[in-house]
């Protein structure tokens, strides 16, 4: 029974992807999309989803939207500007190193969201996740501090706050 419940969100998600990718919504698309989405949902449902009821909480979607807006229009722009300035500077002021930052989230998807956000902003790349899932090791282009808490404030604090609201 739980297998079927878990299949439903995956099927809905894949159906949306199918319709968007196809770019049309004739009867043929809808019928084949529903059949394909149901098959994919049943096969992959138990792997992808751990807790279905999170999908029903609407506030998570608003926080997700806020996360996306903050991420694309503030974090990305700032990081791109910073690294582009370093590349075009004739002296190339880089000071790379690997720092350790604590991370305090519950679910694995939050770790994925935080780590991917960190990697996707130029200047920081996640190199390693500590086996106990409490620390991330970040390759940072300009190491300001080696203290974990301060590095966390500079790199991942906002991402973590949003990811907690969305995924935990």
């Amino acid at each position: 029974m739980s297998r079927i419940i878990r299949a439903i969100p995956v099927a809905i998600l894949t159906f949306i992807v199918y319709i968007v990718f196809t770019g049309s919504a004739t009867h043929f698309d809808i019928v084949t999309g529903v059949i394909g989405a149901v098959i994919v949902g049943i096969v992959f449902g138990s792997v992808v989803i751990t807790n279905t009821y999170k999908f029903l909480q609407l506030q998570r979607y608003f926080w997700g939207l806020a996360y996306a807006l903050y991420y694309f229009f503030i974090a990305e722009v700032r990081a791109h500007y910073d690294v582009i300035k370093r590349i075009l500077n004739p002296k190339m002021p880089i000071n790379p190193g690997i720092v350790k930052i604590p991370i305090d989230v519950a679910s694995d998807y939050s770790i994925l969201a935080v780590a991917n956000s960190i990697t996707n902003t130029p200047g920081t790349v996640t190199v390693y996740v500590h086996p106990n899932k409490k620390y991330l090791y970040i390759n940072w282009i300009d190491v300001v501090t080696r203290e974990p808490e301060e590095a966390r404030k500079a790199i991942s604090y906002v991402f973590e706050k949003f990811a907690k609201k969305v995924f935990d």
């Binding site: 990305e76 791109h80 690294v83 880089i94 790379p96 902003t121 130029p122 200047g123 790349v125 282009i141």
Partner: peptide, 18 residues
């Protein structure tokens, strides 16, 4: 321009996203 692999990773991020 960047000197080694771990610094080039940041240039690669600019390529992928921006």
């Amino acid at each position: 321009r960047f000197p080694n692999f771990f610094v080039r990773l940041h240039a690669a991020t600019i390529c992928a996203i921006g």
